[in-house]
Simulated scan of single mutants.
Amino acid sequence: MADVTRLMVRLDGPEGATLTVKGRVAWTLDQLLQAGEAGCTPIERPAPRWSDYVFKLRKAGFSVETIDENHGGSYGGSHGRYVLRSAVEVIEEVRR
């Protein structure tokens, strides 16, 4: 996993709330910010509990869309593509 350990961000514009996320939730937010409109999936950016990290971001007030996608292969099925829909300004980041 990447080296981000904490992000302080402003959510939804200059008058929005200032929030701090830490650990793997910060990593997830960083991945979503890097992915932009394309979004990202656990297949592209492996991590153990994507759905939990996204759940925690939503609970904190972030808007994250889940787009269901099918995939083939030996273990075909479906997965979620997560796209950050909130406007987020990074104020401070802490990396290892």
Rank of each mutant, 00 (worst) to 15 (best):
R49G: 02
R81N: 12
T18P: 00
S78A: 07
G80T: 04
A60H: 03
L7K: 03
Y75V: 11
V9A: 05
R96G: 12
A2T: 15
V94F: 06
P46Y: 12
V9Y: 04
P46E: 15
V25M: 11
V54F: 01
W50P: 03
S86K: 02
V21G: 10
E65Y: 02
D52T: 13
T41W: 00
T20M: 10
R49A: 12
E44W: 01
K59A: 09
G73K: 03
E92N: 13
R24T: 15
K59G: 00
P42F: 11
Y75L: 14
P46V: 14
P42T: 10
T5I: 10
L32D: 05
V83G: 05
E44C: 03
G76W: 00
A26Q: 10
G76M: 01
D3L: 09
Y53P: 03
V25Q: 11
T18W: 00
R24S: 10
E65S: 11
T18I: 13
G13H: 06
M1T: 13
K22Y: 06
V64G: 08
V88E: 08
Y53N: 12
A26I: 12
V25P: 05
S78D: 09
G77R: 03
G61K: 02
E93G: 07
L57A: 03
V25E: 11
L33E: 06
A38M: 03
M8E: 13
N70K: 07
D30Q: 15
K22H: 09
H79C: 12
P46R: 15
G13T: 08
G36V: 05
F62L: 08
S78H: 10
L19I: 15
D12I: 04
S86I: 12
G36T: 08
K22M: 08
R45Q: 09
L57W: 01
Y82L: 08
S78G: 07
A17V: 13
I43K: 04
M1L: 07
A87Y: 05
R95W: 07
D68I: 15
T66H: 07
N70P: 00
E92V: 13
V83F: 09
G80V: 11
L57V: 04
Q31H: 10
P14E: 14
S63F: 00
E65V: 06
P14V: 13
Y53C: 14
E93A: 09
R10C: 10
E69P: 00
V90W: 03
